[in-house]
Amino acid sequence: MSLPEPRSEVVERARRGDPQAFGEIVRIYERMVYNFAFRMSFNREDAIDMTQEVFLRLFRNFGKFEPSRGFGAWFMRLAVNVCINERRGRTRRSSLVQADSAECESRPAATAEIGKDRILRAVADLNPSYRAVVMLRYIEDLSYGEVGRILGLPEGTVKNRLFRAREVLRARLEKVGVDG
């Protein structure tokens, strides 16, 4: 999977405040941003707030976008930064999986559920910048290069960060007796 990229003429019109063009950009990215926000916050209401904040920031900061750069990576960097900063500002992590795994659409079978809940809990306890790498790689299925473009990091740093995040997860899961 790769980052969706709207036509440059649509981006330009949206940048000038054309509501239709902005609507098209909303339609292209809203699901991606909402999914990412949900996986960063583990909470539907927070995800709604974060997504709204991302698009408001887009509207306010559209003037800073340089058309010579790819819009998708620029916009997703803005989205990721908003989600990471919002996440750092909130302190609801403690009750996350109990409260919010119930919101997930598909629920795993009972035996596997305990293991998955523990994995999710471990992911939720990751530092937000590590979690962002994990989510972009796993859920959006982006390449190291694309994750790097979004986060403004070299590919090698992305690989390292992802590896460290996975090692942290494995160590935590081994501690609680889950095969991670």
């Binding site: 999914n35 997930c104 999710l120 796993y138």
Partner: peptide
């Protein structure tokens, strides 16, 4: 990890 995260579908 991937399987657990894919269950986290809003």
């Amino acid at each position: 990890i991937g399987a657990a995260l894919s269950d986290l579908n809003p």
